[in-house]
Simulated assay, not measured.
Amino acid sequence: MSRSQRLLDLLQLLRRYKYPVSAETLASKLDVSVRTIYRDIATLQAQRADIRGEAGVGYILKPSSDLPPMMFTVEELEALRLGAEWVAKQANGEFSEAVNNALAKIAAVLPSEHEAKHREDVIRVASTINAPAVMVDLSELKQAIKHEDKAEISYIDAKGAISCRVIWPMLIGMFELHHVLVAWCETKQAYRNFRLERIQSWQNLQQKYQPSRHALLSEWQALEGINHSFNRY
């Protein structure tokens, strides 16, 4: 591996950590010596990379507009494309336009010699989504979740009974056979999963719920035994 490539790999590795990481851990990940990590850190700092820390304490990369964007590998681009295509086929095409725009922006900034521009796809996402049609406007659900607004819904349960409920929408889960809204239900005083195709009507009440969505999600994940950490390192 060339030194320039190693420096890029070190930057990319540092981007993945939210907290200081030791030189020993970095050396193990990159299969180099700790002394090499010290030298490379010093080189990156000299090139205006905002890396804080010191030997024996650990290092962390602070966000900086001075750093150029990392160039994607072919494998990383393929993973992004496949994930984007899968998302585009969910939610009745809700994200199709956004996906196409995102992929076009990525393609536009790739240099002409990048291998991804001259490589045929070897994996594609098939149209296997069989979720029933949803009667409510998904954009209204997303808006309520983002703004932490309460909503009143008319819902048909598995037995066909219709009920009117006030809920605190938190998260939309997309599965192959159905889409689910995770929410706190004031009627049941408990967290509930609502199948989107069973929601007959939706009214945003323009009332903020408390505690925050973040706090509710943390509690729900703990109750469900879901380990959902964005920082895995």
Rank of each mutant, 00 (worst) to 15 (best):
V99W: 00
D31W: 10
I41F: 02
K62P: 00
M70Q: 10
V57R: 12
F95D: 07
L110N: 08
R81V: 07
E75M: 15
R52Y: 03
Q47L: 12
N92V: 04
A104G: 03
G58V: 07
R39P: 10
I51Q: 07
A27W: 07
E76S: 01
L61P: 00
R48L: 10
E97D: 05
N100M: 06
L61D: 00
L61A: 09
A84V: 01
F72Q: 01
K105W: 08
T25N: 01
Q90T: 10
A42Q: 11
D40R: 01
G53W: 03
L77Q: 00
Y59W: 10
L67A: 14
R48Y: 14
V109F: 13
A49H: 13
I60A: 13
L44I: 08
F72M: 14
V32W: 04
V74K: 14
A27S: 15
E54Q: 07
L30R: 02
E24C: 07
M70G: 12
W86H: 13
I37R: 02
I41K: 00
K29L: 08
E54C: 01
K105H: 12
I106T: 05
A49D: 13
K105P: 03
I37H: 02
E76F: 04
A79I: 02
I60E: 02
I41V: 14
R52Q: 13
T43M: 07
I106A: 10
K29H: 15
V99T: 03
A98L: 15
R52M: 05
M70R: 07
S33R: 12
V32P: 01
V32S: 03
N101W: 05
I41A: 00
L82M: 09
T36D: 11
P68T: 08
Q90N: 13
